[in-house]
């Protein structure tokens, strides 16, 4: 499974960043091969609106099959859902590997709706 994870720094020990649309960077992690690549999210960093939408679009284009982040707003959710990407919401201070392990062992289930109310504009 190809995961895209919002992280604060470029390291396999990096913690999952709770913000999705305005996360600093993404790790693209393939749990089959263990390969990991890094993708900055700078493009949307300054966006006044629609950061989540743009980010979700980029994440889909990276080839994500699942997204791991803290919270996902309704707009980003709509985009990811339309693309058939699963969304996992992580609470607490997990690293990339810990998070993937918990998901693959079935301890964390995919979200069934946006968990933070979105904001207009």
């Amino acid at each position: 499974m190809k995961y895209v994870i919002s992280v604060k720094e470029q390291s396999l020990d990096a913690r999952v960043d709770s913000r999705f649309g305005r996360a600093q960077m993404f790790a693209l992690y393939d749990s089959k091969t263990g390969e990991c690549s890094w993708h900055p999210n700078t493009q949307n960093f300054q966006a006044a609106q629609g950061a989540g939408i743009q980010t979700a679009q980029n994440v889909v284009n990276l080839g994500a099959e699942a997204v791991i982040s803290g919270h996902c707003g309704p707009k980003a959710y709509r985009v990811l859902e339309a693309a058939g990407v699963r969304i996992y919401s992580i609470e607490g201070n997990l690293t990339i590997k810990e998070a993937v392990q918990m998901i693959e062992s079935g301890k964390i289930k995919a979200m069934e709706g946006a968990d933070v109310e979105g904001h207009w504009v």
């Binding site: 939408i53 709509r78 693309a83």
Partner: peptide, 17 residues
């Protein structure tokens, strides 16, 4: 305004943006 997204060939519109 980031009001349109196109993923996997499908457009999505966000009217409020």
């Amino acid at each position: 305004y980031n009001a349109i997204a196109v993923v996997k060939g499908k457009p999505l519109v966000f009217n409020d943006l």
